[in-house]
Simulated scan of single mutants.
Amino acid sequence: MLKIERLSAGYGKVEVLHGITIAVPKGKVVTLIGSNGAGKTTTMRAVSGMIPTTAGDITLNGKRIAGLESYRIAKLGLAHSPEGRRVFATMTVHDNLLLGAFPRMTRARPRGNVASDLERAMELFPRLKERRSQLAGTLSGGEQQMLAMARATMLNPEVILLDEPSMGLAPILVDEVFKIIARLKHEGVTMLLVEQFAAAALEVADYGYVLENGRIAVEGPAQKLRNDPAVKAAYLGGVH
């Protein structure tokens, strides 16, 4: 589905990623974990076309997307729920969600029924249904995160990139976000997940990669990584 091969990328002359390879199969959840500054968000930005790549390749359903502009990548079916939420603060919840479906509404990506998917998003995120006419900038941090995730689903995407969906949220909201991710997984949604709570990410994921200093240090089935002593010590608080 999504293949990242020998990818290098960064900012200006500073290279952050050094030839990483990641595969996200159809219908699976793959997580990318690592310490702050390891290159996780840079990976997501490179995949979605927010920053240029310097080497390697990225393909979505066999189509090369490396080097394409973000809006072209979205048309091909890749949705990005970015770090920091980035909702359109002066627009309503309803209009934020419709913007997620913009390529479909312009026939650039004619897939499915937008109206029915809007209702599905409201059902998946009931807090948004209650606040559909409210300005996005007046929502709580947790509600804005839900809006960012719901907006990504409105593309009816092939793959969703979820970058730090639990960042800044209270524990009860973190649990709610991961329940939604688990439900999307059950529905067959393909996801690449970057998450600061490695234990929760590995619990919901099928496969995981550990990123260290812009390189893949360890990879494997999520259950195997959860039981790896080195991964436990470094990212799971040394739990046993």
Rank of each mutant, 00 (worst) to 15 (best):
T42L: 09
L211M: 11
D163M: 03
Q145F: 05
T31P: 00
R104A: 11
T42R: 08
S140V: 13
K232P: 03
Q223G: 05
V87Y: 03
I51Y: 07
L184Q: 01
G141P: 04
A101C: 04
L97N: 02
I216D: 06
G37E: 09
L139W: 09
L99P: 01
G67L: 08
T42Q: 07
L192T: 08
T43L: 09
G19S: 08
H186T: 12
E69S: 11
S48E: 03
S140N: 13
K232S: 14
L169G: 02
A198I: 07
F178I: 02
L202F: 08
L139N: 10
D228S: 03
L202Y: 05
A23I: 12
G142D: 14
A230N: 12
T54G: 03
T43A: 05
G168T: 08
G39R: 00
T43I: 01
I51N: 07
T54H: 12
N113D: 15
V239A: 15
N213G: 07
I22R: 02
A9T: 13
R132E: 12
N156D: 15
N61V: 09
L78T: 09
I65K: 02
T90A: 10
T21H: 00
A170R: 10
A233C: 03
T153Q: 00
G208R: 00
K179E: 15
S8E: 14
H80F: 13
H80W: 12
A121Y: 07
E119D: 15
K63H: 14
M122V: 13
A205G: 05
I73C: 09
D57V: 02
A233L: 12
L17N: 13
M146T: 09
P171I: 04
Y209K: 01
M1G: 08
K185C: 09
N227D: 15
T106L: 13
G67N: 12
R85P: 04
R215Q: 15
I65T: 04
E187G: 01
P25T: 04
I181E: 07
M122W: 10
M50W: 08
S70V: 10
T190M: 01
H94G: 00
K185D: 12
A150C: 11
A136G: 05
G39D: 01
G137T: 11
M122E: 10
K179Q: 15
L60R: 01
A217D: 11
G112E: 11
K129I: 00
P52F: 01
T53G: 15
E5I: 14
R151C: 01
A234R: 03
G137M: 06
L155F: 09
I58E: 08
A200Y: 14
M167P: 07
T190P: 01
Q223D: 14
A55D: 13
T90C: 01
Q145H: 04
K28A: 13
P82I: 02
L124T: 13
V177T: 06
A23D: 15
R6T: 05
H240F: 05
